[in-house]
Design a protein around this nucleic acid. Structure first.
Length: 271
DNA sequence: CCATATACCTGGCAGC
DNA sequence: TGCTGCCAGGTATATG
């Protein structure tokens, strides 16, 4: 579920409601991705100041230290006044004076890590190497060009790595490359300046659009069984192997790159 | 430093 | 029906 748009929509769904709350208790379930996580004494009694996002991480500022949350591949957060009994995949309950924040994460690739500050070694170990935010002013076209020129890996994998720009996951990488007419296998350094400009615009467009309609699609996702309502419905190429390209009707191709699926139109994406 | 592979974990689904 | 193998929205870590 979580690429940047889903994480951002999740953030927006509870940030205002939890701000100002005081943490009363913390219950952790099975171990998450990293053994170093959070101890109740790090957070109990602290006040929640704000919830920010950096890439696919959520940063919950406390009046002392902060909590870093990551949803991994299968995580979701729910903030409610009252929560039912914890199920086998509920691995965090953060009880506050304004509600309980629950992390549901069947695969447990998510993370909950406490750090004394954003600049601390614990936090920087996770955040320090991240690329720029795609929806902010820091995502500068010239800088993007320069960064890509130094990468010999296929553009799809460069986007996924998060080292140049954060938040572009496996779905949006394929979608952004389709929108900009770029073959996912092309070395990043070989892209022409005009192509990079198209890609730059496509990344912003696909992510911003998903955030804008993320609210409804995420609600659908929660209320529905299965995966209906998620971005897949509007996907141009992701998950559409063999189906006709929406532009030229050529069958969409599926390949593996770095053990991840990539989808593209062999006719519309030639550069 | 760079590019690529591996590991982590569970559930759903296609194929037999 | 039940089993097996494969696939899934991420990323730290290991390896060449």
């Amino acid at each position: 579920m979580p690429e940047l748009p889903e994480v951002e929509v999740t953030r927006q769904s509870f940030a205002d409601r939890i701000a100002g709350a005081r943490v009363q208790a913390l219950h952790m379930g099975k171990p998450l991705r990293w053994p170093l996580g959070v101890d109740p004494k790090d957070v109990v009694g602290r006040q929640v100041i704000a919830v920010r996002r950096r890439g696919k991480y959520l940063l919950m500022d406390l009046n002392d230290g902060l909590l870093l949350l990551h949803l991994g591949m299968s995580g979701s957060l729910n903030f409610a006044q009252v929560q039912g009994p914890r199920g086998p995949h509920d691995h965090m309950d953060l009880e506050t004076t304004q509600g309980v924040l629950r992390l549901h994460d069947p695969r447990r690739f998510g993370a909950v890590v406490w750090a004394p500050s954003e600049q601390s070694p614990q936090a920087q170990k996770l955040l320090g190497h991240l690329g720029v935010e795609p929806l902010g002013d820091a995502f500068d076209l010239r800088a993007f060009n320069v960064q890509l020129k130094r990468k010999q890996a296929p553009i799809k994998q460069v986007l996924l790595s998060g080292q140049v720009v954060v938040g572009v996951g496996n779905i949006y990488a394929s979608e952004a490359l389709f929108l900009s007419g770029i073959r996912p296998t092309v070395k990043a350094a070989k892209l022409s300046a005009p192509r990079v400009a198209k890609l730059h615009a496509a990344i912003r467009e696909v992510l911003a659009r998903a955030v804008a309609k993320g609210g409804s699609s995420l609600r659908d996702f929660v209320s529905a069984e299965g995966k209906n309502g998620y971005f897949q419905l509007e996907a141009a190429v992701y998950g559409r192997t063999g189906q006709p390209c929406r532009i030229c009707a050529t069958p969409i191709k599926h390949i593996m790159q770095g053990q991840r699926s990539t989808f593209f139109c062999p006719v519309c994406q030639k550069y």
